[in-house]
Design a protein around this nucleic acid. Structure first.
Length: 261
DNA sequence: AGTACCACCTGACGGC
DNA sequence: TGCCGTCAGGTGGTAC
C-alpha cells in the first residue's frame, strides 16, 4: 500500500505520538522483517533510547534516536505503524513492537512481510548504498527535466523507478499521469518540455493533495482517478470506462481519451 | 539502460 | 460450503 503520501502520513503519526519517550523494550515478533544482523543490535540499541525526530525519503521512514543512530522502516505493500495502549487494539500482523515507559506501544504491522525494519548509524550511507533517488516532493524542476528528458523508458516506469526519484509507486503514478493528461506508455524522452513540466506539476499536486487528505481516498478531489481504479471503473472527467493494462510489470489504469501520447 | 519474468509472503476474492 | 487459482499500492535478482 504505502507510497510517498502514505509514508508521510505515517511519519506525522509517529511525530504526533512517539517522540521523546523512553523505550522500555523492543520485541521482535517476526524476524522475517528484520535485516539479517539487525535484530540483536536493534534490541540492544533501542532499550532506554528515545525517538527524537523523523525523516522520510521516498517510501522510507527514518527515526532518529537520541544516541545518533537511526531506525529505518520500509512498509512494503501492506505495512503500517500502530500506536496503542490496550491489548485489544493490537493490529492483526504485528512484526516488531516498541514498548514505551508510559505503557503505550508502537507496532510495526505488516501482513505480507515485504517491508523491512533496519537500523543504521549513517543514514547518508544507507541512502547511497540503496541508491535511493531524490524524494519526489523535494526534487526541483530543473533536476526533474534533466533526469527525464533523455530517458528511453515509458513514463509510467520512469516515475516508478526509485533510483531516479523516490516515492512514486503504481497507484500514484496512475494519478500523476491522469492529472497530467499523459498516456502511461509514452516514452518519456519524446515529451516536449512543456508537457514534461506539466508532469512535474502534476506529480507535486497529486502527492501533496493526497498528503493534505491524510491519504484518505474519500477526501480526494472529484477528478482524482485513484478511487476509480477498479475493474470497470470510469473516468471521473469524461465518464468513459478506464483501460486496465499491464505496463512494465504493473497493472495500471488510465483513460484512453483524456490521456494522450 | 530498458523490459520481462520470477521470487519473496499472506489473505481476499471470484469461479466452480 | 469448500477448494483453487489469481492477484495485490514493493523491491531485488535474473536474463535478454
Amino acid at each position: 500500500m504505502p507510497e510517498l503520501p502514505n509514508v508521510e502520513v505515517f511519519r506525522r503519526y509517529i511525530d504526533a505520538t512517539c517522540l521523546h519517550q523512553t523505550i522500555e523494550a523492543v520485541t521482535i515478533l517476526d524476524a522475517d522483517v528484520m535485516e539479517a544482523e539487525s535484530s540483536a543490535q536493534l534490541k540492544h540499541t533501542l532499550a532506554g533510547n528515545r525517538f527524537e525526530k523523523t525523516d522520510r525519503r521516498g517510501k522510507y521512514l527514518f527515526i532518529q534516536l537520541n544516541t545518533a543512530g537511526w531506525l529505518i522502516f520500509h512498509f512494503g505493500m501492506t505495512g503500517y505503524p500502530k500506536y496503542y495502549r490496550k491489548k485489544e487494539e493490537t493490529p492483526d500482523h504485528p512484526r516488531v513492537r516498541f514498548v514505551f515507559q508510559n505503557g503505550y506501544r508502537l507496532d510495526y504491522d505488516n501482513q505480507r512481510k515485504f517491508g523491512r525494519v533496519d537500523i543504521t548509524h549513517d543514514i547518508h550511507r544507507f541512502i547511497a548504498e540503496k541508491n535511493i533517488g531524490t524524494d519526489a516532493l523535494a526534487v526541483d524542476l530543473p533536476s526533474f527535466m534533466e533526469m527525464f528528458e533523455s530517458k528511453p523508458s515509458m513514463v509510467k516506469s520512469a516515475l516508478m523507478n526509485q533510483k531516479t526519484i523516490s516515492g512514486v509507486g503504481n497507484v500514484y503514478s496512475d494519478e500523476i499521469l491522469f492529472q497530467a493528461g499523459i498516456h502511461p506508455k509514452t516514452k518519456i524522452k519524446i515529451l516536449p518540455s512543456k508537457r514534461l513540466q506539466r508532469l512535474y506539476d502534476s506529480m507535486k499536486y497529486a502527492l501533496q493533495t493526497s498528503i493534505d487528505c491524510n491519504a484518505e481516498h474519500a477526501c480526494f478531489p472529484d477528478d482524482f482517478i485513484i478511487p476509480h481504479r477498479v475493474e470497470g471503473g470510469r473516468c471521473p472527467k469524461c465518464e468513459r470506462e478506464l483501460v486496465k493494462e499491464k505496463i512494465a510489470g504493473r497493472v495500471g489504469y488510465y483513460c484512453n481519451t483524456c490521456q494522450k501520447s
